[in-house]
């Protein structure tokens, strides 16, 4: 099978995807449009592919979760279009692509950053089916005007406890990008999950 193509317009498509991610992490819980007209090999979604192509390269290693790592076409696609190293150890990854969020490894398995360099932590990109503002989990924190609600499904098992543990590590900790078809939302480590 021929290799699926990358961005039709690499400069502007990458910029568009990046600005959506920047807005997503700067305004946690708000859903941003992420136009992604890619047709990557399954189970890699168009949005996960757009995020990887926009940000991953030889300096930013990528970790793939089980379903993605088992698909050789996905590996071939990412290697060709990004040149990024695909790492087996999640603690080495700048970006982790997760096609099956429910089976996502514990957040502590990924790079957490150090007290002196908290920026050296993994950004997890979860492919979710449902993403809607104004419902579901409530968050407060920098970038959030008052309080925000974000409905996400599926989420990693035991998400509330795992996210609170991650938040408590601040300034260390992982950051989350949640990518549904055509949309993306962000949860930086600063987002504090409120009791239901």
């Amino acid at each position: 099978m021929a290799l699926a193509r990358g961005f039709a317009d690499p400069v502007h498509d990458a910029q568009g995807a990046f600005r959506a991610m920047l807005d997503a992490l700067a305004r946690p819980g708000l859903v941003q449009a992420l136009p992604a007209a890619l047709a990557p090999p399954a189970p890699l979604t168009s949005e996960l592919a757009a995020i990887a192509l926009a940000l991953a390269d030889a300096d930013a290693p990528v970790w793939l979760d089980g379903p993605l790592a088992e698909a050789p076409e996905v590996e071939e696609f990412l290697r060709f279009h990004t040149g990024a190293r695909l790492v087996a150890d999640p603690a080495e990854a700048a970006f982790a692509l997760v096609a099956d969020p429910e089976a996502c490894p514990d957040f502590s398995a990924f790079a957490q950053g150090s007290p002196a360099y908290p920026d050296r932590s993994t950004t997890l990109v979860l492919a979710v089916r449902h993403l809607a503002a104004g419902e579901g989990l409530a968050f407060e924190g920098p970038g959030i005007r008052g309080r925000v609600r974000l409905g996400v499904a599926p989420l990693p098992a035991g998400f509330a406890a795992r996210w609170s543990a991650n938040h408590a590590l601040f300034p260390r900790g992982i950051d989350l990008l949640l990518a549904a078809p055509g949309r993306v939302a962000g949860l930086p480590r600063t987002a504090r999950l409120l009791e239901a």
Partner: peptide, 11 residues
């Protein structure tokens, strides 16, 4: 861009 995303996450 990678630096900017981390900067936003750690105000």
């Amino acid at each position: 861009r990678r630096a900017l995303l981390k900067a936003v996450a750690i105000p």
